[in-house]
Amino acid sequence: MTDITVTVNGVSRAVSCSPSTLLVHLLREELQLTGTHVGCDTSHCGACTVVMDGRAVKSCTVLAPQAHGRSVTTVEGLAEDGRLDPLQEAFADHFALQCGFCTSGFLMAAKAFLDTNPSPDEEQVRKAISGNLCRCTGYQHIVDAMLAVAEGTT
């Protein structure tokens, strides 16, 4: 077992776990933050995407000890004081989610991307979410929502 302290959604959390624990399982099973999902075994689907120290990463491809001392934002930390992030509002307005399973991952990938690329074009948006798979939406509404946030029209 190894002792890990990680700041999750602004709160410092101390956990003791096996070093082979994946960050996604630490979040889901130790911290009960089940909004971050596991959709594959090979780092392809992005359903587990969180923002770690400002960058979107696949939490299924981070060992818990690698997250020690870092700051992690999950989908549960996206809204502040109960106010939805503009991305969350845009996802709702643009029907950018259906079954919702991939949604947290898309939100977090989109959040980190738009924070550093506030005025992207459509091609850049599509590339930014090319590490996330969705089976329901055909991506059109997700792209629409991200562009709406970028353009401040949501």
Partner: peptide, 21 residues
Amino acid sequence: ERLRRKNDPRLLVGHGRYVDD
């Protein structure tokens, strides 16, 4: 009307409850 979906408020904040949750 293009009304927002009933489930979105939960799913958007990570409060969905899938079996594994």
